[in-house]
Nucleic acid binder design. Structure first.
Lengths: 120, 120
DNA sequence: AGATGAACATGATGTTCATCA
DNA sequence: TGATGAACATCATGTTCATCT
């Protein structure tokens, strides 16, 4: 069996996609706002996701057929269009989250093993 | 302040280097054997490091001035040379480990936050 | 400035090959 | 086959640029 991709840590893109799905379940947001939100959320962990990663992750979820998008006028006076997202296939979204749960657990386990193995 | 490199997860190379330092503290091993050992260790976590990553990590530690190497005849009948490692600068090795401790903690925290944020 | 996106550049890592005992 | 290493290829991700309101 060929190994293919990395078997080490989960990819940043997968991590972001997980958040995007959860955020879609909770509220209607658009790319830029999502970026601001996540940046703020992760600040204390020194993680500063790139804006482009957010957009690319959103586009991947569109390509995966998990989300669909439509343009909406941003609330407020300046009539500027933003792209908001909703589920196209919620079941697949749930399946993805389930998959990521296992992957997160695996990664935590690996890191905790390293802590155990290398520090006393 | 420019951001530069990724602020997400620690790099595989750093993870391996941490183990290499610890292994150097404990026993005298050489590249191929280290690879076999780590492969076995991480099997249950689905992580299968590449042999080349081990060698590259060892070379990096040499370049960093943390380890030094010398050739030794492999114990046994076939006289084959292997490359074994010992500390050139143990203080720097310790400093590296300390750094990595913080990095591992940070990454675990980030992943656990994701578990908390995305699953109930 | 806020927002979206594409294009480009680089870095990390996987795959393959060469060599030697 | 065990062992080391380099060369090559690719993918993930960061940086820059274009466009529009």
């Amino acid at each position: 069996m060929a190994q293919g991709k990395s078997t080490f840590m989960l990819r940043q893109r997968a991590f972001i996609k997980l958040y995007l799905i959860t955020m879609t379940e909770q509220k209607r947001l658009y790319g830029f706002k999502i970026w601001e939100t996540l940046e703020e959320e992760f600040k204390e962990f020194g993680y500063k996701p790139q804006r482009s990663e957010i957009y690319k992750s959103l586009h991947e979820l569109l390509d995966d057929g998990i989300l669909k998008s439509h343009n909406v006028e941003k609330e407020g006076t300046k009539r500027q269009e933003v792209v908001v997202y909703q589920f196209k296939n919620h079941d697949e979204a749930k399946a993805y989250k389930k998959l990521l749960k296992a992957e997160l657990d695996r990664c935590v386990g690996l890191l905790q093993k390293a802590l155990k193995d290398n520090y006393i």
